[in-house]
Design a protein around this nucleic acid. Structure first.
Lengths: 210, 210
DNA sequence: TTTTAAATTTGATATATGTCAAAATTAGCA
DNA sequence: TGCTAATTTTGACATATATCAAATTTAAAA
């Protein structure tokens, strides 16, 4: 694993709002987020835009670029963040020598596929409040894995960005958050979010198909 | 490439309606569709279901299973289909010896990620008629790549399945198809579809964000 | 072939979310 | 610190799609 370390270089700090890569940029590396928070978004010809994910410290970003040697989305820092760069062709080289590393890469790629398909399920079959519940539970769970509180955290993104990710307008996001608060499942004040009842949120998420 | 051939074994014929793998099945292999047509679908706890893709001859299926050693969706034959099995651990072994094969696998995995993210864009930001247009154009393009007519083909799936894939109810799919026909962009009669104006469909797809 | 079940279309109506607008709050900047 | 722009909330109303229902067509089974 020391050999993997040798590959990785600090790419430095990305300030809030700055861009790690843009759609169309030549693909050369994956990036590990050391600290901070990012969003990825695709933009199609007619200006339609969609946030495809939010990535936090400890997660890997940039896998969209492998297939065409160019990135297909933009990655934007939502807070000041530190990034490590993993040159991909050298990672492939090393993967050939170290089967566990190779396996790990494949797992990461596959999990991204599964993650995306679960968002498809969310976008295709859940109503606004359920989408919000699913979104908050997902954040909660990821914070928990990283040793942060699963019930109390800051949202790093705007209502607009949450809406884009969930296929909703920002007003709908705001209303759904208010409703969840009304139901005593969460407390939300601006970007500060507290989950009062994880179980209740889970129940809310699984209410019923459309 | 003869060595790749040696890996691959005919898994035989899957009749219409039969299941290649189920969610929860142990992951052991990827599958290449030699002939035929499949759908993949996820089912969550509360019975909500979503078609995550339609796969045709020449495409690879099963990549969702790599990340957790178990499949996360069902793969169902939509017509009688022939399947080849590619044992994944042996593919990984071979990839270590043959860098071009390794690269190819990574590309396929990444392209699946990009495909899914484009469906997220569709589900999150397009209206019913645009989704249908995008869906038909995607099929058209894939048929074209495989040497079939890009403008005249059979739909292998029900309106219900199209709807599930596009996040719409089957009635909405039916109505949207009728509208596209009304606009002289397509002719549809049952499962037979003809695209009268590819350009018009593209324009329809890009109409405007919600 | 005849029968039955499944899939599709179309209409009427309901509803969730979008749109537009204004006020209130918060954050960034000089 | 105060000023300005951005974000958020909430309300009133519009609209796209869902829901319910019935008729029709197509495919499957006996």
């Amino acid at each position: 694993m020391a050999r993997l370390d040798a590959l990785i270089t600090r790419k430095g700090v990305y300030r809030h709002g700055s861009i790690l890569y843009r759609s169309g940029d030549k693909f050369q590396a994956l990036y590990a987020i050391r600290t901070g928070f990012f969003k990825t978004q695709i933009l199609n010809e007619d200006g339609r835009e969609q946030v495809t994910g939010f990535q936090m410290a400890g997660e890997i970003i940039g896998m969209d670029g492998i297939g065409s040697d160019a990135h297909t989305c933009d990655a934007v820092a939502l807070e000041d963040s530190e990034i490590c760069e993993i040159p991909f062709s050298r990672l492939e080289d090393l993967g050939r020598e170290l089967p566990p590393l190779q396996k790990h890469l494949h797992r990461i790629l596959s999990r991204e596929i599964v993650r995306d398909q679960n968002i498809m399920l969310l976008l295709g079959s859940m109503r606004a409040e359920e989408r919000l519940a699913a979104f908050l539970l997902n954040l909660s769970q990821r914070f928990a894995v990283r040793g942060y509180s699963p019930t109390s955290f800051q949202l790093r993104m705007t209502r607009q960005e949450i809406g884009s990710y969930l296929g909703l307008k920002l007003e709908t996001v705001s209303r759904a958050l208010s409703q969840l608060q009304e139901s005593k499942l969460i407390t939300v004040r601006n970007r500060s979010l507290e989950i009062l009842c994880l179980h209740g949120l889970q129940a809310c998420m699984g209410k019923r198909a459309r």
